[in-house]
Measured scan of single mutants.
Amino acid sequence: GQVNVNNTTYTFPTPKLAKEFAQKAAKKYNLTVHVSGNTVTVK
């Protein structure tokens, strides 16, 4: 799974890890998680 945070893309071996990372990043920066297919964007 891929996660985009502040124009930086992070790649994870599983969608589960990507989702967990996205949720932590969203909480940390007070942003929202947007899911589109296999790509998760935090903005």
Rank of each mutant, 00 (worst) to 15 (best):
E20A: 14
Q23L: 12
Y10V: 03
A25P: 00
K28W: 14
T8E: 06
K16Q: 14
F12A: 01
T14W: 03
V5I: 13
P15A: 14
T9R: 07
Q23H: 09
P13Y: 05
T32W: 07
E20F: 08
S36E: 13
V40R: 00
Y10M: 05
Q2W: 14
A22N: 01
K19T: 07
E20G: 04
V5L: 12
V35Q: 05
T9Y: 09
Q23N: 09
E20L: 15
V5R: 10
K28L: 13
A18N: 00
Q23W: 12
P15T: 10
P13E: 09
T14L: 03
N30Q: 07
V40P: 00
Q2P: 13
T39H: 06
L17I: 07
T39P: 00
V40L: 02
Y10H: 04
F12D: 01
K19G: 05
G37D: 04
Y29A: 06
K43G: 08
G1V: 14
N4K: 07
T39V: 12
T41G: 02
K19R: 13
N6L: 14
K19S: 07
F21E: 01
Q23D: 13
N30W: 13
T32C: 06
N38I: 06
N38M: 06
V3R: 03
T9A: 05
K43D: 08
V40I: 03
N7Q: 15
T11Y: 13
Y10Q: 02
K16I: 09
N30G: 15
A18Q: 00
V40E: 00
T41Q: 06
S36Q: 11
P13H: 07
N38P: 03
P13A: 14
A26G: 05
V42P: 00
T9E: 05
V35K: 02
G37C: 03
G1A: 12
K28G: 04
G1R: 03
Y10W: 09
V42F: 07
Y29Q: 06
L31N: 04
V42K: 01
K27P: 02
E20Y: 10
T11L: 06
T32E: 11
K16H: 10
T11D: 04
V35E: 02
A26W: 07
T11K: 07
T41K: 04
N38A: 06
N30A: 06
E20V: 08
K28Y: 14
A26T: 09
T8F: 14
E20I: 13
N6W: 15
P13M: 07
T11H: 10
T14N: 11
T32H: 08
